[in-house]
């Protein structure tokens, strides 16, 4: 069968087109995509072609849709599901410990056609059914929320002091919401130069530091590199990934504190071992998620309005090529979701 799809070819031009997909066999489901979220990694692929194993590619690994066919009958037709983005090899030493530690991990969209398409065929084990009544446009946040939940789970305990989040894109915002969900009352500060993102942070209860001059909040004086002066943070989350953001995060964290790195930055930064030792700083990385996807679905289904403000843009299939192409120079405020089919 053929499906409407966004196609990315080797020339890195994103176009509206269609592609063949195999009909599902027992053990697989055909999902009619309702919404597919745009991830920062999609933008990286669009700009670089990195990680793609087939051409033309159809990206999109944050997917919510409806089961259209299920030959094995494992899931009733019409059920709203979210799709697991991970494709671990299942055979390496990393996989023996946890899927997120796979040495050969690939992702939906990069090694096989993803969710920027009307239809998608995936193993039935790669979908999580949503409770009745779940809005697909909320459920599409399940994958990035799982990433945020997994990142926060990398912390050993509640931070003993305030947290600072560098960068308030979708991942920074989800990490913020997860921090305060898990530890109510935890003071979360946000450093974000984009006015609308900073306003979103304020609206969701964060304190904005070293951000733009907003009309609607108290902004503390910063040091000019995104880190507020005069505070010690027990936790600093690097969700920005700008050049030297890890250095800034390490400087902002209190002695004995943790820097949690969730942003993908390829730039080398200096590490001074004696500083790590003498200040007892932990730098913690994280990738993907393990068993968080069903929990994320549950959270989104039970409290949709808590997460609703994070979806700030929705584009139709025909609007998507232009908007995605310009997102590098005109970033979104929050999550952009694509409705990848025409009526």
């Amino acid at each position: 069968m053929r499906t409407d799809a966004l196609l990315l070819d080797r020339d890195l031009k994103l176009v509206l087109g269609s592609r063949d997909i195999d009909a599902p066999v027992p053990g697989e489901v055909l999902v009619r995509v309702a919404w597919a979220g745009v991830c920062g990694s999609d933008l990286h692929v669009l700009a670089s072609g990195a990680w793609v194993a087939y051409w033309p590619a159809t990206l999109g690994h944050e997917v919510a849709g409806v089961v259209e066919k299920c030959p094995g009958g494992e899931i009733p037709l019409g059920v709203t599901v979210v799709v697991d983005s991970r494709l671990p090899c299942g055979e390496c030493p990393g996989c023996s410990r946890a899927p997120s530690l796979c040495h050969n991990m690939t992702w939906l969209g990069e090694s096989r056609p993803g969710g920027f398409a009307r239809f998608l065929v995936v193993p039935v084990t790669s979908v999580v059914a949503c409770p009745d009544g779940t809005e697909a446009a909320i459920a599409v946040l399940a994958e990035p929320l799982s990433v945020a939940m997994h990142a926060v789970s990398r912390l050993a305990a509640r931070p003993p002091g305030p947290a600072l989040v560098l960068g308030y894109g979708p991942v920074g915002a989800l990490v913020h919401l997860e921090l305060v969900r898990r530890w109510p009352g935890l003071a979360v500060f946000v450093s974000e130069p984009n006015t609308e993102r900073a306003e979103l942070a304020l609206a969701l209860g964060a304190q904005v530091v070293a951000g733009p001059a907003l009309a609607t909040g108290d902004i503390a004086a910063g040091t000019g590199d995104g880190v507020p002066a005069g505070r010690e943070f027990a936790l600093v989350v690097d969700a920005a990934g700008y050049p030297q953001s890890l250095v800034a995060a390490s400087r902002a964290v209190a002695n004995g504190g943790t820097v949690l790195v969730v942003a993908l930055s390829g730039q080398a930064v200096p590490v001074v071992p004696s500083e790590l030792v003498e200040r007892a700083i932990s730098i913690v990385g994280c990738i993907g998620f393990d068993d968080e996807l069903p929990q994320a679905v549950g959270l989104l289904a039970s409290a949709p309005d808590r997460y609703r403000p994070l979806v700030t843009e929705a584009v139709l299939l025909e609007e998507a090529p232009r908007r995605l192409a310009e997102m590098g120079r005109r970033p979104s405020v929050g999550k952009v979701v694509v409705r990848p089919w025409r009526d």
């Binding site: 979806v311 700030t312 139709l316 009526d343």
Partner: peptide
């Protein structure tokens, strides 16, 4: 309304 709902509506208009 909320962004996804408005996109759906634009889709209906275009259709």
């Amino acid at each position: 309304g909320w962004a996804p709902q408005m996109a759906v509506l634009r889709g209906v208009l275009a259709s």
